[in-house]
Design a protein around this nucleic acid. Structure first.
Lengths: 101, 101
DNA sequence: TCATAATATGATAGTACAAGGATATAATAG
DNA sequence: CTATTATATCCTTGTACTATCATATTATGA
């Protein structure tokens, strides 16, 4: 039995299996934004958000690009996107996986 | 922001986010079987399997029907089925595949 | 009844995770 | 250089999860 396949997929699910992180990923799928945006949305201390972002980044689910003083986050993990879409299938308002400006 | 929705979905993901449980659910989706079958497959102590089954049952992901001396388990949670299919999309028996890219 | 196979539960010990405060780094403006 | 804003890291405390052993329950057959 191919255990490592399950381990890898399970780790993804476990990472997404936290309300704050799930919310962050879902939000980022609609529009990439920075920590302050998320923080305002979730009303949690900045350090808590940053920690979750760090976990998501370490697992390759999101990436952050620094733009001047901000860091703009977006979702880059295909499986993660698929899972979240299946679960929270509220038809993306738009397919806005963009970075304007 | 609708937090409870995320909490509920996150709990599902967290529950599936353990290699043994993920493996159990995936296996059960292909054919419902009993504890001994799973145990043999995973080579873990019976009590460990049973505990994971208990967790999956408590969260409404699987159900067990007693058939004589055995208990036959099967997956009953729609979201769980969708998630596992998307993630472990090996030859879905039917064309119930979710879109890919 | 008793023995046995299948499954569940309880207890325990080790490990990992979560939140939030304090503090540190990075970029830029002045 | 200094101040400010944005973000990251460190640390502590409490809580939850995991694996396993030992034991209990349940159903059935002799």
């Amino acid at each position: 039995m191919d255990v490592s396949k399950y381990q890898q997929k399970a780790e993804l699910l476990k990472t997404l299996g936290h309300p704050v992180r799930l919310c962050i990923v879902h939000g980022l799928m609609h529009n990439a934004c920075n920590v302050s945006g998320i923080q305002e949305c979730l009303k949690l201390p900045q350090s808590t958000i940053s920690q979750h972002l760090g976990i998501l980044k370490a697992r390759g689910i999101i990436k952050g690009e620094r733009r001047g003083v901000e860091v703009k986050y977006s979702v880059v993990h295909d499986d993660a996107i698929k899972v979240v879409k299946v679960l929270l299938d509220d038809e993306a308002p738009f397919s806005t996986r963009v970075k304007e400006e």
